[in-house]
Design a protein around this nucleic acid. Sequence first.
DNA 1: GATGAATGAGCTTTCATTCAT
DNA 2: TATGAATGAAAGCTCATTCAT
Lengths: 210, 210, 210, 210
Amino acid sequence: MANTKQTNSRKEDLQAYKRQRILAAATTLFREKGLEGATMRAIAKEADYSTGAPYAYFQSKEEIYAELLALSLGNLNNSVKEATARSTSVTNKARDAFSAYYQYYFDLPEDLQLGLYLFSSGEIRRRGFSDETNRLLNGKLIALTGYMANCLYDIDEVTPIIAQQETMDAISHITGILLLHAAGRIDTFGSDPQEMIDRYLTQMLERIRT
Amino acid sequence: MANTKQTNSRKEDLQAYKRQRILAAATTLFREKGLEGATMRAIAKEADYSTGAPYAYFQSKEEIYAELLALSLGNLNNSVKEATARSTSVTNKARDAFSAYYQYYFDLPEDLQLGLYLFSSGEIRRRGFSDETNRLLNGKLIALTGYMANCLYDIDEVTPIIAQQETMDAISHITGILLLHAAGRIDTFGSDPQEMIDRYLTQMLERIRT
Amino acid sequence: MANTKQTNSRKEDLQAYKRQRILAAATTLFREKGLEGATMRAIAKEADYSTGAPYAYFQSKEEIYAELLALSLGNLNNSVKEATARSTSVTNKARDAFSAYYQYYFDLPEDLQLGLYLFSSGEIRRRGFSDETNRLLNGKLIALTGYMANCLYDIDEVTPIIAQQETMDAISHITGILLLHAAGRIDTFGSDPQEMIDRYLTQMLERIRT
Amino acid sequence: MANTKQTNSRKEDLQAYKRQRILAAATTLFREKGLEGATMRAIAKEADYSTGAPYAYFQSKEEIYAELLALSLGNLNNSVKEATARSTSVTNKARDAFSAYYQYYFDLPEDLQLGLYLFSSGEIRRRGFSDETNRLLNGKLIALTGYMANCLYDIDEVTPIIAQQETMDAISHITGILLLHAAGRIDTFGSDPQEMIDRYLTQMLERIRT
DNA sequence: GATGAATGAGCTTTCATTCAT
DNA sequence: TATGAATGAAAGCTCATTCAT
């Protein structure tokens, strides 16, 4: 019985490993060639699998996309945590958290595109996400925003409600900037995204301490 | 001769009307079925035309998309102007302008999607927009942001630079909120987009008057 | 009655003139842009007519092509006759005639392409040439070969049968050279079409005088 | 391991066989219905495949065309060699070679059409032949003409230059006859293509021996 | 599980031709 | 006759997905 369990576990590990391989291939393709380059054929090939192999691990292309997004959100979480690990003050920690969020998507605009593509209005109903997938994605987001809100809550004067509010505000603000930047609509108007971020965060931190 | 002119004018009107019909069909499809539903075949059918008919009015699918976006930006412009026509103070006027921007896309989330899709990073180069089309779209955007910046500049203490800066900040902020709302990522976190907007605008107006 | 006739004649002239305009446009397009550029739309436009106008004068695109070919054959006939008008001997006249045939198609390879396209095996049955059209084309060809055969027959020792035979041989030979030249298969093998022609004609003229 | 090799080889054989099936279907269509009948859909259907299947074996329609032509040139080469295998003298060998060339295209006029279509002036640049494909086709042609020229060179009095010259002349001549015959322009004038060929070859062989 | 050949609906675009005006 | 909007079949090609092996 222990034997069986171990075998099962080994099998599951193997399965998980193979899933990972496909997801890694999908990530590579996605970041290198964008949405268009990421056909199922190309993903399978990149993972050194045959055309149909991914379907043993994922029900559809959308499911791969969803999992890719989950992966990306995980990376984002890590980025934010790493960025705040060495922060020198609670205020700086909050600033570093949001800055890391900005930096992550600034460096990997395809990941932002992926998120927008999958979440974007109207489409989400048509997509075949399982409830589980949806829960997974929401969980990742909640963890992320929770962590950021906590960074704000660590600052003396901040109540939980304010922290939560300001977090959503900041995420919205930063996402908006990233978007307009990716769309080439910020440079056009003579603004610099990094400056915009800094200014917003400075104002926010001033605001919540009064 | 007057007759001929009138006839020409009637023909042009008709032609314009038919273009509109196709654009209306495209808009409908876009709003009802999203990007995927908006194939040339579907657009033609929706407009009660046969497969090839739209090509008599538009050179390509991308041209339809571009014109749709131009149309949407025009509507947005109008919405913003109408909203500020009856404003009771310069401060209110600024607030109304940005609120109208928010409201427009809140009511028509597909229009936001369209804009993001067409402008979004990487894709824009691949798209076959003519320079003229690109200029047109940029012009619409500049007119819009210019108008909003002016609303801010009308407020006593505001310099042109501040007005421009705050406009981009506000647009980014609002767009981010719209996006996260459309993605269903705001309600999840117990926030209300309208409240977020109001709060941001209040803060902004306070800020720029000191 | 005379009046009616005159009116009819005027109408016919007008009709003929308009046909010519369309054919001229088709010729221009054909020579400038090749088979691909010669769409009905393009032909109509080139002739300053509307899309459907050519159908009042020609039953189909193929009919225009056929008439174009007839026109081309007429031009070829003229070229051959002009070339032989000033020939200094019967031998030279024969040589000049065949040289002119060669030169005509060398200068206007599209015309050769047109002939091949319309006549080429298998296709001709599928094309909707009327018997009349076919007769017209054949007539032009008979006139041409007849004229050339006569040039040979003018040479003392030549019998009518030999003249006819040698004419077909020479036309075949020259056409073959033109074809391989147009296909880029002659220069590849280090031969010069003009030299090949000269050599053949010299040999032929020697041959028939013994 | 030997097993694996065998399996691979079997797979390759199968793949080659399927390519052949598609090419055979294309050949059939080409010969039965001409250029127009040879659409990708029709080829797929004729080979009992679905619409997209041929694209697993050929990158594009042009590639099929090119391969068809290469195949045809190979067959032609074989025909010429077989015809000369049992020739009773060097003179007869030369005659047999050119006769075989004639006979091949006389029996399969569509193959001539294919060659002319793919090589024909202007079109060749527009076609997407790879350099490699172009080299392959040229190689086949050079091999063919080389073989024929050698047949002439085998005759005592013939220099290499004469052999090459006469080969191109003869090929041009024969091709011209084939063409006019296929176009129905030879029988019209009471000539018989086979006789024309015989006459030409007889003259040629006489000529080069003096 | 893995393979990869096969499917077939789908895409954008073109264009000869028709026909109401 | 002339117009030109409209038709609609057809093309080459792509790709998510299936399924026999």
